[in-house]
């Protein structure tokens, strides 16, 4: 199939940026969305133009590096929910489609180049308190801390977050609540994490606000685009934890 792509081009953080139109030719249905971009880039290099920069690494939906807004929705979740853009295949599109591709847009995710943005704000939120403070060594035998199976399952549901930032990209307020809530809930749900529960939620929320993310207005758009379908229930849980910590 042949497609028309409107791709955001931006030389660097200072550049204003604009859309450019490209034609993607002979795209097969088994290609992933990123492989389609690879092919477009190969063609661009052959024509002597600079290829479009976009982030990707594992290409199996787990590293969280890919970050494309496809026709207005992060990861193209309107075509396939519960997956990152690298797992979206071209069989979901049809010949002649026009596809608009933009980067994540948020003040806390400054642009780097083209479709690449800087998500280190997420790392700084984790650095502020998204951990259990144990040093290496000296930990008790793993089975001395029993964890009820439902708690382990629930913690895992939250811990599945891949930190891609689609939740921020999708939120009309560019809020990072789902990301932060997932980590807070993962750690608080486990007995190991309850010791520092109050401090953790306070520090992480403070850092989140400091990074310039917006507030949550409970539209659940984040959950709908999340590659791991992390539930907004965790946002309620974090709010509960936060109120408890005051």
């Amino acid at each position: 199939m042949n497609l028309t792509l409107n791709v955001w081009r931006q030389r660097n953080a200072q550049d204003k940026g604009h859309f450019l139109e490209y034609q993607a030719k002979d795209i097969g249905p088994d290609m992933s969305f990123l492989e389609m971009l690879d092919q477009m880039n190969e063609d661009l290099i052959k024509q002597g133009s600079e290829p479009v920069a976009f982030d990707s690494d594992c290409r199996e939906g787990i590293c969280g590096m890919c970050s494309l807004v496809i026709n207005g929705v992060p990861h193209g979740a309107q075509f396939q929910s519960g997956s990152a853009a690298c797992q979206l295949h071209m069989r979901k599109f049809k010949d002649g489609d026009v596809i608009t591709i933009e980067p994540w847009r948020a003040k806390a995710f400054p642009a780097v180049k083209d479709l690449v943005c800087d998500r280190s704000a997420f790392d700084r939120i984790i650095q502020a308190g998204g951990y259990i403070s144990v040093n290496t060594g000296g930990t008790p035998d793993a089975n001395t801390i029993p964890v009820p199976k439902p708690a382990a399952e629930r913690a895992m549901d939250a811990a599945a977050c891949i930190g891609c930032g689609a939740c921020v990209a999708a939120c009309k307020n560019a809020s990072a609540m789902l990301f932060v809530a997932a980590k807070v809930s993962h750690l608080t749900t486990l007995p190991q994490g309850q010791v520092e529960a109050k401090e953790r939620v306070q520090k992480m929320v403070a850092r989140m606000d400091q990074e310039g993310f917006g507030h949550c207005t409970n539209q659940s758009e984040c959950q709908a685009v999340c590659p791991k379908e992390i539930s907004v229930d965790f946002i309620a849980q974090m709010n509960r934890e936060y109120l408890k910590s005051l």
Binding site: S81, T100, N218, S220
Partner: peptide, 27 residues
């Protein structure tokens, strides 16, 4: 204040933002 912060949190808007879950009421 929420509205102002939301706009500050996304200075550059999307060319075409589409919603897939958010209810009309919430939007």
């Amino acid at each position: 204040q929420l509205n102002r912060e939301a706009r500050a949190a996304r200075p550059e808007p999307y060319a075409g933002k589409a919603y897939i879950k958010a209810s009309p009421a919430s939007r």
